[in-house]
Simulated assay, not measured.
Amino acid sequence: MEDYARAVLTLDDAQLELFVRDWVSNKLGAYVEVCRFSGAKDLGRDVVGFLTESKHEGDWENYQCKQYAKRLPTDTAICELGKILYYSWKGDFTPPSKYFFVAPKGLNRNLETLIFNPSKLKSAVVDEWDKYCRYKIIENGDIPLSDELRLVLERFNYSSVTRIALEDMLSDPAAKKVLFKYFGADPGMSPRGIVPPAILDSESEYIRQLVGVYAEKESVIINNHEELDAFPQCKKNLTLQRERFFDADAFKRYYRDNTDAEVIDGFEEDIYHGVVDVFETVHPNGMDKVQSVMTQAAAIQTSGATAKYARVPVKQGICHHFVNDGKFKWIS
């Protein structure tokens, strides 16, 4: 993590905003939409997470990104907070429900004291408006503290202002995908799959075809997987194949969530090209085809970020995903 902390410190202002935008976007379920505002018309916003479809007319949270060579100074932070409250008073948006300072170098001691004491932060914004905000929000401008503006400043919930430490951001699971995108971070090993007791609709096609393979092997009619109780070896084999299927399913979901989509696409392409010739070979029966493909899949050396984490059951389980997707058929 320390290496990535140093890497984040090398980002410039725009890159930091993009990094934070991607990180916030990965916070699954937290926001209905995430937007980055930049340039002279950002009105004090950097990265915004909207909590409702009402966007700026409803609840929203602001991530103020500051890439400084030193700790974020008090005057800069107070001015930024004052700016966003000023434009909320002007009617451009509602005040943010939460306000985060994202400063990789951290905050100076005085600013941290203010943030951890909301009443003191409020006093700094309201009582010292002329010092921090009046002449700095608009270049060559003057924004005196009118009674109406003072009311907006006093009503704001200053306990909603906080800072996000670099180590907290980088340890957030939502940061894994961003660290991979920007710095090629190792995504780590995926969790093993959990096999549900009941057959799911999402696995029905490869299960149906395996039942056909077992029926051919036993030279009997087997209408569905529930009839496999009469054939213990076939039932045992089905249990094994389901373990492989759900290991592959967990693998795919983990790397889609923590890397680029191209990583899993490339992994599946490696498996497909590694087994397709064996699959298309004429086999004496369906069971021989399944076993031959499973043996071949186990031996494939995949490439890319997942290579060292692609366990044998995962590579074998991907073949069942191919059946589910219509690329392969275990039996016609």
Rank of each mutant, 00 (worst) to 15 (best):
E2D: 08
D3W: 01
Y4T: 06
T10D: 13
L11E: 13
A14P: 00
L16K: 04
D22A: 06
W23D: 01
K27F: 00
L28A: 15
A30K: 15
V32Y: 04
V32S: 11
R36D: 04
R36G: 10
F37P: 05
A40I: 11
K41W: 11
D42S: 07
D42T: 08
L43P: 08
R45A: 13
V47W: 07
F50H: 13
F50S: 04
L51K: 14
E53V: 03
H56C: 05
C65M: 10
A69E: 15
K70F: 14
T74I: 12
T74E: 14
G82Y: 06
L85V: 01
L85D: 00
L85W: 03
P95L: 00
S97C: 04
G106F: 08
G106V: 01
R109N: 10
L111C: 11
L114N: 01
S119V: 10
L121S: 01
L121T: 00
S123L: 06
W129G: 00
Y132I: 02
K136M: 00
K136Y: 00
G141R: 11
I143S: 07
I143L: 14
E148A: 15
E148C: 09
L149N: 07
L151E: 15
N157H: 12
Y158G: 04
T162L: 08
D168Y: 02
L170H: 00
L170E: 00
S171E: 14
D172V: 03
A174E: 02
K176C: 07
V178E: 08
V178W: 05
L179W: 04
F183S: 10
G184N: 15
A185W: 09
D186I: 10
G188V: 09
S190W: 05
P191Q: 09
P191C: 10
R192P: 02
I194A: 13
L200A: 14
S202Q: 13
Q209T: 05
I222A: 09
F231Y: 15
Q233L: 14
L238Y: 05
L240N: 11
L240V: 11
L240Y: 11
R242D: 08
F245C: 06
F245W: 12
D247P: 04
D247H: 07
R256E: 10
D257C: 03
A261N: 15
E262D: 11
I264N: 01
D265S: 02
E268G: 11
I271T: 06
H273I: 09
V275W: 01
V276I: 15
T281F: 12
T281D: 14
V282I: 15
P284Y: 01
K289L: 14
K289V: 08
V290P: 04
A298M: 12
T302M: 02
S303P: 01
K315A: 04
K315W: 06
C319S: 06
C319E: 02
F322T: 06
N324R: 13
D325W: 05
D325S: 06
D325Q: 07
W330C: 07
I331M: 02
